[in-house]
Design a protein around this nucleic acid. Sequence first.
DNA 1: ACAAAAGTGTTTATTGTACACCCATGC
DNA 2: GCATGGGTGTACAATAAACACTTTTGT
Lengths: 265, 265
Amino acid sequence: MAEGLPDQVAALRPNAVVAVDVVLFTVRLGDPTGRAWQVLVLERDDAAFAGRLSLPGVLLRADETFDGAARRALAAKAGLDASQWYLEQLGTFAAPDRDSRGRVISVAQLALQGSAQIRLAPGRGVMRAAWLPVRALPPESLAFDHADMLRVASNRVQSKLRYSWIAFQLLPETFTLSELRAVYAAILDPALLRLNTGNFRKAFETLFAADVLVPVGTRARAGRVGRPGDLYRFTGPVLGRWERELPWQGSPEPGPDDTTLDTAG
Amino acid sequence: MAEGLPDQVAALRPNAVVAVDVVLFTVRLGDPTGRAWQVLVLERDDAAFAGRLSLPGVLLRADETFDGAARRALAAKAGLDASQWYLEQLGTFAAPDRDSRGRVISVAQLALQGSAQIRLAPGRGVMRAAWLPVRALPPESLAFDHADMLRVASNRVQSKLRYSWIAFQLLPETFTLSELRAVYAAILDPALLRLNTGNFRKAFETLFAADVLVPVGTRARAGRVGRPGDLYRFTGPVLGRWERELPWQGSPEPGPDDTTLDTAG
DNA sequence: ACAAAAGTGTTTATTGTACACCCATGC
DNA sequence: GCATGGGTGTACAATAAACACTTTTGT
């Protein structure tokens, strides 16, 4: 940070355009597993990128934090009130040619929210927003380097699902273990649906023991058929983690597993 | 990224000062385990931060990548040729008050290199640089929010040591399993030194089977006493990972485990 | 010869998976 | 009743830790 004299002279002169883009994920429990994991995209009508999709983003304001800008982007571009949503920094993208209009540095943020709590309320200035299934989204359909951001975000969520407790950010206040399993199946591997209920439950044994997952007493309203599951509430810290990673391997997604940015061997 | 019309008009006007700071870690195999894990810091002589330490950093240039700037920072501030070193993006720090001279956004980079390959070659314009043990470094001694960066970097390395193959970036071309164990012990937990050699070796069984760790034939020159260990070479990709995380728990470092930036519950 | 450290194998405890069984609901 | 899905317990397989033993060096 500008310790050298030549740097210090210029220290107060802005030298970059900084934007914030948001990768907002949700899981639609009603949809089939292959399409349940969805991402929010905007449909662009610019001349330059006609027909292509992009992530919601804004330019950073003078005294704004990154997550402040991210929440503002969701409000301004999609009419979403994200003031209470889970948000974390994903990484900063700065390939010199990533934006044709000049050099723009973008801080990508990852947001998670349960689909039940999301209400797309189109207001003034809101763009056409759409939810698309992550697994069925062709990378070419995204403008700029937003496909890179989506890839990094997907990898991040898949990893984090195994060692942290973020899965509960994608569920409503109370939920059944089946719904929890649906989240894991949608993001990690559909094969988890064919896993035994007992084994799935056992993986969360420590959370039950620590009262992080507490039964709420009630049963879920009957689904279609079969016994309704017990309802649970998550009381643990959002940033909580397991001591030992969950055993379920993510689906062997080929290609670079770039959780790691800016790496050169 | 500036899709809205109001944003687009201003899209080419720089709106922020962007810097790049580097957290360079090494492990000195000679030192006692408690002090072997070290970080490079600069001793500041500014009036504002007299006597305090800081991480090497520079302002980002117009057409420079982040890791380009990071390597330049190491060269300019400490005289290190980091052109071939392992580097990854750590996160971007932007608290509005993090720099008293104005709002500066800093992209922190994590660098790893074996201590044997590091040659501090003070040249013109190079600042006083020092290697300090990470575990014994009081957070207050660092200027700006560099203590935050160091904390995030430490957590990142500790996690990554367990699921990826970066440990080998901290070792010379050929090394013994004892030296490898010393790296893990220094960063994760000194108790690993008291772990049986056989069990440690068994953890790397898959790497031996995949010829990622290959014996180089020779024996290490005798240490102090006892049988010298076999020498090995790491041939795998820098970004390689284990399918299953290593079992060794990091030392139960209290405090926030912030690998996660910008999170608000 | 002895101590110290490295390498190899076996035994035991812990953890993950598979399977069998009972419970509650819709038809 | 019967099919379907949820909840509980047990048996088997895989993995981590503990331990015993052999090899190679310096003193």
